[in-house]
Design a protein around this nucleic acid. Structure first.
Length: 422
DNA sequence: TCTGGGGTCCTAGGACCC
DNA sequence: TCTGGGGTCCTAGGACCC
């Protein structure tokens, strides 16, 4: 059996942990740049606030309904996620972290029947009490069915956060009432096509033949189809190495000057380098991109995208920054453009051990690694990016909007909550 | 005026290699 | 006159996930 643990309204729940006045109050969290709504508490969902709507379109409505609004605080959410995952890992030797707020657990041989339910309730209690984040656990024989179970677990309070699909009878019953568009792997486009064929529930989908599913929805459709029947197709322990790592941002105001865009790109490249080092990997190529705003078709459009191969695999910021800037300058065109978004993607990721160097590599890789280790250590002790590459600048010309950001309750001494005694 | 960020997988074609 | 089979690398777009 496989378990799926899903944090309820994760970002909104994180904001609540250190701010009890938000309990029972509608809460929403915005994306970077205060752009869109990306998380909602149950109260906010009940008000009919949709996922993904641009903030400016509903700002007045939110004010009227006295909804608490937050800019996204990824430092806080990342740290809370780490705490949740740490507690989960004490419940199984085999945890596969799927996203910031979700993880799959291999429950093979852990318990069965009523015991499994007990185990689940204990898990939910432990995480909720230990972190303040409410979670739901869905248990079934495949990942897709575990997702179905967790949705039922959230929908009905009677489950107390744990829903099991552990018999054929329960599986059939669960699929009978389950809207096909809520199935993991079925998106907007497939939904449209399925509606056309009169397929509305997961059970309808399962009743079709494999060859028909393959013809209409290719192998990915077949995978979902099999998973729903209880045949596992998606591996639990794919936590393989990432194949790409991306850092990108939208800018509050469009950028017209190459120098400013270069500064932004240098920072995105440095961030990719840091992510590579954190997982002990190097990259051997990158893509740098910059777009003008896609919502302002009345303005001149420009779409820069440059692939840059790197000879010797690296995670050293100056090298990655240099490669990214080289790409940006190659793609740069003269014109009256206002770039709204830019980013760096690193590809061809390899472990940082066993690097194949060039015969005539002019760089002393050992010295370089030692230097970077020292820089990382200084930054760890003294604060984020105390030392950085000069081309990263001060970031003042392309800052993000985050008007409603909360404090870094768990990672910054200045922001730790004070407990006052009488 | 204001519209996110970070991933995966699949398909398909072109260029190039032996 | 007749012109294969098996690869890699890169680009690009679509669909899906959270």
């Amino acid at each position: 059996m496989i378990g799926l643990v899903d944090c309820n309204n994760f970002y909104a729940s994180c904001e609540r942990v250190f701010n009890p006045s938000l309990r029972h109050v509608p809460v929403v969290v915005l994306s970077n740049n205060d752009g869109c709504i990306v998380a909602r508490s149950n109260e906010a969902k009940a008000l009919g606030i949709d996922m993904g709507v641009p903030f400016y379109q509903v700002k007045d409505q939110l004010e009227k309904a006295q909804v608490a609004v937050f800019s996204s605080n990824y430092i806080l959410y990342g740290d809370m996620s780490r705490r949740v995952m740490m507690l989960l890992s004490s419940f199984t030797p085999h945890l596969s972290i799927y996203s910031i707020d979700e993880a799959f657990l291999d429950l093979q041989g852990i318990a069965e029947g009523e015991k499994l339910r007990e185990y689940g309730l204990q898990l939910v209690r432990t995480v909720t009490k230990g972190t303040g984040i409410p979670v739901t656990l869905g248990i079934a024989s495949t990942k897709t069915l575990a997702k179905v179970a967790s949705k039922y677990g959230k929908k009905y309070a009677g489950y107390k956060g744990v829903c099991l699909i552990d018999t054929e009878e329960k599986r059939k019953k669960a699929l009978q009432d389950f809207p096909i568009e809520d199935v993991w792997g079925i998106g907007r486009r497939m939904r449209k096509q399925l509606t056309y064929y009169g397929i509305h529930t997961a059970a309808d989908f399962c009743s079709k033949s494999e060859s028909w599913i393959r013809k209409e929805f290719t192998v990915t459709g077949v995978r979902t189809w099999k998973e729903l029947q209880g045949i596992s197709c998606i591996d639990i322990d794919d936590l393989p190495q990432k194949k790409s790592i991306c850092t990108s941002r939208s800018f509050a105001e469009g950028i017209s000057e190459l120098a400013v865009l270069e500064e932004a790109v240098a920072n995105f490249a440095a961030s990719c380098a840091r992510k590579l080092r954190e997982q002990h990997t190097c990259c051997q190529a990158l893509t740098v991109f910059a777009y003008t705003g896609r919502f302002r078709l009345d303005l001149p459009q420009c779409h820069i995208q440059e692939y840059v191969p790197i000879t010797v695999p690296t995670n050293y910021p100056p090298e990655i920054i240099q490669a990214a800037l080289r790409g940006l300058r190659t793609g740069w065109r003269k014109g009256d453009f206002r770039f709204k978004k830019a980013g760096v993607i690193v590809w061809n990721i390899t472990p940082d051990t066993a690097i194949q160097t060039q015969l005539f590599d002019p760089v002393d890789r050992g010295k370089q690694a030692a230097l970077q280790k020292a820089i990382d250590e200084i930054n760890r002790k003294n604060g984020y990016q105390i030392l950085k590459v000069a081309s990263q600048g001060d970031g003042r010309k392309w800052n993000l909007k985050n008007e409603y950001i909360s404090r870094q309750y768990t990672t910054n001494l200045r922001d730790v909550i004070e407990v006052k005694s009488e």
